[in-house]
């Protein structure tokens, strides 16, 4: 990873991340979190920031197919890795089955937790296409819904799994 020092002595690093299939190279400071990188450098504001301490899961993205809190990953640590955000799920303007299912099951209230919930659920269905209700609840245990609308969220994930 190449370090670049500007006239004021501030160090920046050249990183390349694959986000939703596209490769992006940017020069960032070491203290840039992956969440801020996605939102501010790439304008991918679907990824939300909540607690920023790894408790709420609003900022969940897939890092090499595994759900992580992007507020607790430094952008420089994600150099060379594959990231999937909520913007990467719809294909050719057609929503992902999970997204459709969230709409159909009214699993969205204020919507703030939704991108993170869907990314956690996506990771679950990728490795376990037919989860039990308990497995769904476990998979989204790191995603807090401030409207407490968990019942329909679980229903939506199970319905999406049935459809597969």
């Amino acid at each position: 990873m190449q370090a670049i020092t500007d006239n004021n002595g501030v160090k920046r690093y050249l990183i390349t991340l694959n986000v939703n299939g596209d490769s992006y190279s940017r020069v960032v400071k070491a203290n840039t979190t992956l969440a801020n990188f996605l939102r501010e450098e790439l304008d991918l504001t679907g990824t939300k920031k909540g607690c920023e301490l790894g408790d709420c899961g609003s900022c969940t993205v897939l890092l090499d197919d595994k759900p992580v809190d992007s507020c607790l990953v430094l952008a420089v640590e994600a150099d060379g890795r594959h990231i999937t955000t909520i913007e990467g799920l719809a294909q050719h303007e057609k929503l992902d089955k999970l997204q459709e299912s969230f709409v159909n099951n009214a699993a969205v209230q204020c919507g703030y937790c939704t991108p993170g919930m869907i990314m956690s659920a996506k990771a679950l269905l990728n490795r376990n296409p037919h989860p039990s209700e308990q497995e769904v609840r476990e998979a989204i245990a790191g995603n807090l819904c401030r409207c407490t609308g968990y019942v329909n969220i679980v229903k939506a994930v199970l319905a999406a799994a049935d459809e597969q």
Binding site: G54, G57, T60, L63, K66, P67, V68, D69, L72, V73, S120, A123, E138, A139, A141, G142
Partner: peptide, 9 residues
């Protein structure tokens, strides 16, 4: 421990 996202990191 913790939750899935934290367990992955």
């Amino acid at each position: 421990m913790a939750n899935n996202q934290v367990r992955n990191r």
